[in-house]
Design a protein around this nucleic acid. Structure first.
Lengths: 190, 190
DNA sequence: TGGAATTGATTCGAGATCAAACGAATATGA
DNA sequence: TCATATTCGTTTGATCTCGAATCAATTCCA
């Protein structure tokens, strides 16, 4: 602090655009998100040590298992990862012999990805993606708290990404699946 | 839509591991976070087009402005970015002549980073970090809703990262500054 | 004083991330 | 039929991300 007084109000050249004070909120939101992202990334690296898979790799592996033998584009939509990125992830998964690429005979542009036996085995043995501490704290919450937490995260996600659904192509319908969890006001703006 | 009924309950190959149903919550939470991350990343790339700075670069620039001429380690803590990462970001910022590194004369291990005139100018002209749509929706919320949203995000961040505060070193005290916003129960676990 | 431990920053290695550009295959329309 | 458009996956280029290892400077203790 104390510094603060040295630099008056810092000349807000960029217009407030919203309510005064809202800017700080934005920065705090961003800061919280940054911390979340970082924590998940760090957890991902620990995962590598314990089972040889990174977070995105494990998420991808799970999605492949869930979807059967999806095409890359479908998989990309499912896990919210761009096709370009997914290509690299699948490359590394394939290098470890956990998945296999197959050209679709009907539509030869398509590549389907499927788990190998080793992949299934690895998947079955893989630890959870989130920190144990998070999971136990989560378990300690009341149902409505959990629901509210998820709901808030999904709300933020919607507010942020609905606008920019560009990502390579990604035109297909909404992928939202927020279980039943009523959507609240649902402010369908725009 | 319609798809929904096609995919029953999705064959859980991986064992539940906790309370049944809890896993789905985790996956949904993770999915929401992934979407948030992606949206922010995409926004970051748009930022580059509009002002030549990426999100992390802008965040860093702002923190430098706010802190005066911080050392890299302090800056690292402030923006929740590892020192290794920050070195690269500052490199690129320096390459653009927006900041300057200076060796601290008192402690010559330290490097302080400060804004150049060009950096200040760029910073003043930089657009907000979050999507306009997000910002306007945020502005449309009631005060308590905004507070609840921030509070939830911070709570999630706490639940996730308090455990893993390794990040190179990062031992110093809490950096939290969530303005006044009373912390609620404050569950000082551990 | 002088070696050991600590701290600050950088470098290295690996992976994730996206957009844009690309080549190949399929679909569409004239 | 054939040219054009669209879709699919990959490649390329740039950044971000971290931990671990490393080098330099400082502090600590004997």
């Amino acid at each position: 602090m104390a510094e603060r007084s040295t630099r008056p109000i810092q000349e807000r050249t960029t217009a407030p655009a919203t309510t005064p004070g809202a800017l700080d909120l934005e920065e705090n939101i961003l800061a919280a998100i940054r911390r979340i992202v970082r924590a998940i990334d760090i957890q991902s690296r620990k995962l590598v040590a314990s089972c040889g898979l990174t977070g995105p790799q494990l998420v991808t592996l799970r999605a492949i298992d869930r979807l059967g033998s999806p095409s890359l584009t479908l998989l990309s939509r499912e896990v919210s990862i761009g096709k370009a990125t997914l290509t690299g992830i699948v490359d590394r998964l394939e290098r470890q012999r956990l998945v296999a690429r197959t050209r679709d005979s009907a539509d030869r542009r398509r590549i389907t990805v499927s788990l190998t036996a080793a992949g299934e085995k690895t998947l079955a043995a893989a630890p959870p993606l989130l920190q144990d501490r998070f999971r136990s704290e989560l378990a300690g919450l009341r149902d409505w708290e959990r629901a509210a937490m998820l709901s808030t995260l999904q709300r933020v996600a919607e507010m942020l990404d609905a606008e920019d659904l560009v990502l390579d192509d990604l035109d297909a319908g909404p992928i939202l699946e927020s279980d039943r969890l009523e959507r609240g006001p649902a402010k369908r703006s725009s």
